[in-house]
Design a protein around this nucleic acid. Structure first.
Length: 293
DNA sequence: AAGACGCACAACCGCCACCCC
DNA sequence: TGGGGTGGCGGTTGTGCGTCT
């Protein structure tokens, strides 16, 4: 028994969007917001499938999209998140403000895969390419979260915050803290803050349990906070995502902003958020220098 | 100069989870 | 409670463009 198509395909345009179509979509969403995608095309006067409109808006027209090249820091963050989550592009995208899942997926397939291969790393397993696949391989915190384990609607929320220039270098996955949860299990969804509801076992957590041989009764927490503040001259304590030489060169060359990347990788929220950017167990800090012009 | 080739990325497709009646 | 509708996701394809021969 087949499903009915999401739209009347016979009367819809396909292929590249025209400027006029883009403008119609933008105008409509500006006026009415993102409502029902199924009815949107007709209401907006577009001969497009609702899904197509949604995709076009999310991946291309949304005003908060960053566009442009990925930075080294973003590269590394994607690699690390992928090593934890696998092909969960939407979750990874949630940690990279202004980036879309489609963009990250494409970037992974065209750039990062190759980059990892040239480093001698298998892009799927994040292990050395020449490492024989043995069942008794030493335990690694990497979560073998396969893409067919669908886990949706548990989106993490990005909290853009101002933060101090305190930072540390990107942690090795092996160094990531595993926070043993307290008895009360809480949702990682910021919208449900204080709800106190319990959540189902996450597939990554289940996988991690298998690997670690422990019972972990919470969700993987992947909070990221990014903040900007004027560069103070003395710079970043405790290292940086950038190499120190590159960092000092940039300091000298231009007035800069410090972009503080704080992320938390563990089994649950390890403590308070990065809003105050204070050292909290389970939080890691990175920084990048950007032009203030 | 032009055809072949490869790359980058926008867009599509099919599946699945959730919502609501 | 079950089933249809819808939104959202990951995988895949199509196409335009740049580079190479």
């Amino acid at each position: 028994m087949g499903r009915s198509p999401c739209c009347e395909k016979a009367h819809t345009n396909k292929g590249a969007w025209t400027k006029d179509e883009d403008q119609r979509l933008i105008d409509y969403i500006r006026l009415h917001g993102e409502g029902c995608w199924r009815t949107l095309p007709k209401a907006a006067g577009l001969l497009r499938c609702g899904k197509s409109c949604r995709l076009r808006w999310i991946n291309y027209l949304r005003p908060d999209l960053k566009r442009g090249n990925f930075t080294e820091d973003e590269d590394e963050l994607i690699i690390r998140l992928h090593s934890l989550l696998g092909n969960k592009w939407s979750v990874i995208a949630g940690k990279l403000p202004g980036r879309t899942d489609n963009e990250i997926k494409n970037y992974w397939n065209t750039h990062i895969k190759r980059k990892l291969i040239t480093r001698g790393i298998d892009p799927q397993t994040h292990r050395p390419l020449n490492e024989p696949p043995t069942a008794g391989t030493a335990l690694s915190p990497r979560l073998p979260y396969q893409s067919h384990h669908h886990h949706r609607r548990h989106h993490q929320h990005l909290t853009p915050n101002h933060s101090s220039s305190s930072s540390s270098s990107l942690p090795n996955i092996a160094e990531l803290p595993i926070v043993k949860p307290a008895n009360n299990v809480h949702s990682s969804d910021a919208d449900e803050e204080g709800s106190g509801t319990t959540t189902e076992m996450d597939p990554p957590v289940a996988a991690a349990e298998t690997m670690l041989g422990v019972h972990v009764k919470t969700e993987v927490n992947l909070e990221l906070s990014i903040g900007l503040q004027p560069f103070q001259g003395e710079g970043v304590r405790g290292g940086s995502v950038l190499g120190s030489s590159a960092e000092s060169r940039l300091r000298e060359e231009r007035r800069a902003l410090v972009m503080c990347l704080c992320w938390q990788l563990g089994w649950e929220k390890g403590g308070e958020s990065c809003r105050n950017c204070e050292r909290t167990y389970g939080w890691f800090r990175g920084s990048a220098l950007g032009s203030s012009s």
